[in-house]
C-alpha cells in the first residue's frame, strides 16, 4: 500500500507524475513490443485461420447438405417415375392377358360350336341314311306282306300275276309319297323347334 508514493513521485519525489523516467519508457516499449509481436505473429494468425476454417466448414457442410437433399429429391422423383412405369406396365400386361383370354374363349366357343354343328350334321346324315335303308327294306317287306295278305284274303295267288305286281308297285309309290311328305314335315318341325 505504501507504494502510492512510487506512483505519486517515483523514487522519493524526484520524479513527477507527468514526466516519465527513461527506464519507464523503455520497459513500457519492451512490453508493448512483446505483446504486439506475439499477437501479430502468433495469436491472431492462428485464430483468424481457425475462424476461417470454421466458417468454411460450416458453409461447406451446409452446401453438402443442400446437395444431398437435392440428390435425394431427384432420387425420389426417379423412383416415383419408375413406380408409375411399373404400374402402367402391369396394367398393360393385365389388359393384354384379359384380351388374350377373351380371344381364347371366343376361339374355343367357336370351335365348340363348329364341333357341335358337325356332330349334329353327322347325326342327321346317319339318321337319313338309316331312314332310307329302313324305307327300302320296308318297301320290300311291305310289298311281300301286302301281297301275301291280299292272296290270303282273295284265296288265290297273285304273286306271279303281273297285274298284282303293278298294283303293289302303285301302292308302294303312294306309300312312298306319303312317307316322303311326312319325312319332310318332320324335318321342317325339327328346324322350327330349334
Amino acid at each position: 500500500m505504501i507504494a502510492t508514493t512510487a506512483v505519486l513521485a517515483a523514487e522519493g519525489g524526484e520524479q513527477s507524475i507527468l514526466f516519465p523516467a527513461d527506464y519507464d519508457i523503455l520497459w513500457s516499449a519492451v512490453c508493448a513490443l512483446v505483446i504486439g509481436l506475439v499477437f501479430w505473429k502468433k495469436v491472431l494468425p492462428v485464430f483468424t485461420r481457425i475462424l476461417d476454417e470454421r466458417t468454411e466448414l460450416i458453409e461447406g457442410g451446409l452446401k453438402r447438405a443442400e446437395v444431398a437433399q437435392e440428390e435425394a429429391a431427384a432420387l425420389i422423383e426417379q423412383y416415383k417415375a419408375q413406380l408409375d412405369d411399373a404400374r402402367a406396365e402391369a396394367a398393360r400386361v393385365r389388359e393384354e392377358a384379359r384380351a388374350e383370354g377373351q380371344a381364347i374363349l371366343a376361339e374355343l366357343r367357336a370351335k365348340a360350336q363348329a364341333d357341335a354343328e358337325r356332330i349334329v350334321e353327322t347325326a342327321h346324315r346317319q339318321i337319313e341314311a338309316e331312314r332310307q335303308s329302313a324305307a327300302i327294306s320296308l318297301r320290300a317287306d311291305v310289298g311281300t306282306l301286302a301281297t301275301d295278305l291280299a292272296a290270303r284274303i282273295l284265296g288265290e295267288s297273285l304273286s306271279e300275276d303281273a297285274r298284282a305286281s303293278r298294283v303293289v308297285d302303285r301302292f308302294l309309290d303312294e306309300l312312298d309319297g306319303q312317307l316322303g311328305a311326312s319325312a319332310d314335315e318332320a324335318d321342317a318341325d325339327r328346324v322350327k323347334g330349334r
Binding site: A10, A21, C31
Partner: peptide
C-alpha cells in the same frame, strides 16, 4: 540506469509474460 527495474516495472513485465503465455497456450 535505463534498465532500472522498480516494483511497477517488474509487475508490468510479469503482466506481459502472463498475458503472452496465456494467449500463446490458447493459440
Amino acid at each position: 540506469t535505463v534498465f532500472e527495474l522498480n516494483r511497477i516495472i517488474l509487475i508490468r513485465i510479469l503482466a506481459t509474460l502472463v498475458l503472452v503465455t496465456l494467449f500463446w497456450i490458447a493459440a
